[in-house]
Design a protein around this nucleic acid. Structure first.
Lengths: 212, 212
DNA sequence: GTCTATACAGTGATAGAC
DNA sequence: GTCTATCACTGTATAGAC
């Protein structure tokens, strides 16, 4: 495997069997990590022979890279904050917080996050890919909102980037770490809404314009 | 291995060779995770034969559990906030933030965090152990400080637990995730101090008593 | 308890027929 | 491209001598 590009899909991966193999690998890797998954298990689940797997992917590492990068892209693409109203900061921040939490705390995202952190020592490139497609992108979205809200006068932000970082950190909170550690059940929508509300309340106390 | 108690040290682990093996295992596991480490490598590094390893530890999993639980305990025991002055909230919170970051961002703590998150699917008990000895304990320390500061009138906290959670989340911030993902070098003391200062400033804007 | 030597299972990867 | 069969190798675990 080329360590600098471990995640590039082979062109032939668009065919039928290749996607079948990729889907099987995704389920196996997400459920068990890298080390505990065998190529036999992937082939069995894909309904093909092991030789066929090797006909489409150079090896286990390349297959793993393909799975992880594809998932990173797929999971974070949907997050957007550009259409939210910068005048009503409270409502928009609440919406951002809820969307962020729904994305961040979904079982698939947690499993992905877990496996990347666990294997980043072996595959350094994965951390970079995940960061750019995930946290970096969401923070940029939030930062843009902060800037617009600042211009609209609904928030008092001298450093939009810092404000976005701190908001994202507040939202991530304790619950994210707890789920990464497999403590407690997946978050319910009610729990997400309550957490978002508490975060927005605190954030607004720090960043609301001075009342005159 | 008994899955509910994978981390209990055998009584014989107090001897000389056993600690030698444990130290070797710690270095190997922390550097490479669970799957990539062989019992051969541990035995070689410890300077004993493989059979001796198996004489002291039932298998690779038990050895791993022993290493992780011992490290969790060792790393988080030092954190304390009980002696800080609750009247000078700004200074004390800054001190808490710096201590927390130094602990959290140390290379050893990052490696430990990483390996636990990566292997918690295979060893669910490790998540519980880490949580209780780590984040739970630090949050309790901070929570106690919040309560004392609230009583002293230097902070306006209606829910000390929530305030402690939010403060800890702010401190953890983006840098912790970046280091978990192996992005960038370890944090410098200057970077830690700057981050702590920014966090305390924001937190105080949200939780400082109203000026009359 | 500690060693050397080895049995045994399971792994990633490939050869060769079709 | 796809299969069956098999390779070489590694890792866990144990037997038996001392």
């Amino acid at each position: 495997m080329n360590a600098s590009q471990p995640f590039r899909l082979d062109d032939s991966a668009r065919g039928g069997k290749a996607e079948q193999i990729l889907a099987a690998a995704r389920r196996e890797f997400l459920a068990s990590g890298f080390g505990a998954v065998s190529m036999d298990a992937i082939a069995r689940r894909a309904g093909v022979s092991k030789a066929t797997v090797y006909a489409h992917f150079a090896g286990k590492e390349e297959l793993f890279g393909a799975v992880i990068s594809e998932m990173s892209e797929r999971y974070f693409r949907g997050f957007s904050a550009s259409e939210l109203d910068p005048v009503d900061a409270a409502a928009s921040l609440g919406e951002i917080a809820r969307r962020f939490l729904e994305l961040l705390l979904s079982p698939e995202a947690i499993a992905l996050n877990r496996i990347i952190i666990g294997e980043v020592t072996r595959f350094p490139a994965l951390g970079e890919v995940f960061w750019r497609t995930g946290p970096e992108r969401t923070r940029a979205q939030i930062e843009t909102f902060m800037r617009r809200a600042g211009e609209a006068g609904s928030l008092r932000v001298s450093d939009p980037r810092l404000a976005a970082e701190q908001f994202a950190s507040l939202v991530r909170g304790e619950i994210h770490l707890r789920l990464l550690l497999r403590l407690g059940p997946p978050a319910t929508p009610a729990r997400i809404a309550a957490t978002a509300e508490a975060v927005v309340a605190t954030f607004l106390r720090a960043f609301a314009p001075k009342m005159s």
